[in-house]
Design a protein around this nucleic acid. Sequence first.
RNA 1: CGGGGCGUAGCGCAGCCUGGUAGCGCGCCUGGUUUGGGACCAGGAUGUCGAGUGUUCAAAUCACUCCGCCCCGACCA
Length: 574
Amino acid sequence: MRYSEMFLPTGREVPSDAEVISQQLMIRAGMIRKLTSGIYSYLPLGYLVIRKLEQIIRGEMNKAGAQEVHMPMVQPMELWQESGRWELYGKELLRFRDRHDHEYCLGPTHEEVITSIVRNDIKTYRQLPRNLYQIQTKFRDEVRPRFGVMRCREFGMKDAYSFDADEEGAEKSYEKMFVAYNNIFRRCGLKFRPVEADSGSIGGKYSHEFMVMAESGEDAMVFCEKCSYAANLEKAEVACPERKEIFEDDWLTMEEINTPDVRTIEEVSTFLNVKPQDIVKTLIFDADGKQYAVLIRGDHEVNEIKVKNYLAANEVELASDEIIMKATGSPRGFAGPVNIKIPILLDYSVIDMVNFVTGANKEDYHFKNVNIGRDFRIQAFADFRIMTDQDKCPRCGSDIKFARGIEVGHVFKLGTKYSKAMKAVFLDKDGQEKVMIMGCYGIGIGRTIAAGIEQNHDENGIIWPMPLAPYQVIITPVNVNEEEVMKAAEGLYKSMLDENIEVIFDDRDERAGVKFKDADLIGIPLRVVVGQKNLVQGKVELKIRKNGENKLYPLQEIVQQVKQIILQELQYSE
RNA sequence: CGGGGCGUAGCGCAGCCUGGUAGCGCGCCUGGUUUGGGACCAGGAUGUCGAGUGUUCAAAUCACUCCGCCCCGACCA
């Protein structure tokens, strides 16, 4: 396309509210514009990239045997009541009424809709398995949208749903998607990694997240240096340590100590001159209205998700001051396991500790020389903490590493959570009625693009990998007022169009510097510069955006040269 | 939901404290000179100062209310 006719508003200045580099560059490159908090428009350049990604996704999904559908964004309350999520989903679910006062929501995801479709039209095992997907706009009323298109309220998502007759089949469906996802992100030219993850409110047995490696990523992950173990930090399992033998003879007499206004681990540690590792932290959690005390070694942090999953609770949060007062009889900062009236959950980190310090459930007092079994009894013993870099791989015991990433895809084994609640059943070979086994598989479209930019940019702008590039080449005549130059450039433009090369012809009457800056900013992989000096010798210049390589080619050969590079780079990503 | 900040030209900002009717840079328009990494000179256009109410002779400026946006936290696929 001719640049002079394009709607491509690039900008020199960084918008004041853009924090992450991908957001800044998407705005400066004229890809997106914000409408309101967490809601963006895609301008032509941005939408071209979106469509490139969508086509890659479609290709891989179809190849994996999934079929594309399109479901409504507006969904009736009744459907969500069937699955139970009308009550459970919380404020992220945007609800509203129509003129007849019927209640609806904007779909944050489509398990309900797809299940309602499938249950009506799939009746027998002969129709299974099936995998249906769509690329569609979702709405989640995020508490705090941020990072531009990375975490917004309205966003494009590819979501697929598989239905199987048995566990074995479900496993296969999951595997297929897992493979397809690897292909998709590889073809996009992204550095990524699948990691084990928590299933969150979608529910289900287990899941993998696809993380694009990026320092600015919102998610922390852990991976093993030796084996293939990789997990989201919130999921990363801390192995149960080998139990040491505990000798009751070593137990010292428990003592109550006056610790005025000493609350935090740090304060206790300083005041009593003990290491944080010798203190046991007692945290009071409220799980769906019931309180639990979680005990953990002083230098560790509790992983609320593990607590939530262990208790199979819908919502878990640290208790408020009033609830702490009620549960322990003391203000915040003095909770302890001795004589507490609520159930005690003990983290692995505490199991081998003897003669430790805890709160005394009494304002301004702590106990020392507390021991498990003698001074209190526990209800459960499990992994409740956040992994640290001191921990070892839970699979093979080797050292682990931490990294940050952006979650661009998530594959879930749902099991029968929705099919059971919504009665998606079929008849098997024996004429027995069975519940379908489901899986669901999502890819954040805009987020993947943003993640791609986070990984591929320099101080001058975006550097598109060929498969995602909105255009493959930009032709830059140095001076549009020089007849020879323009004639040659026009000729190149035509031949490239004839060769189906995606090309921008920068025919604007701008200084060369301006055009170079814009070309770099919008990240076109190849730039062909047509200038008087080289043209005299029948040559044009080809500059590669990603490595800055700059070479002269005869005018007659440049189109084939460009074509070859494009094919090579697209193939490389297959 | 708690804490903080911001809202003035298309964009980035100054002016507000100490009230007197709005300015800078970029961009935009016209003319000229330029023309290989965001040119220069000359001229020009553009603002319900987020909205409302109040105080005042007079409000971008002071007060109150509302709205919007952003940041930190809580929460979250």
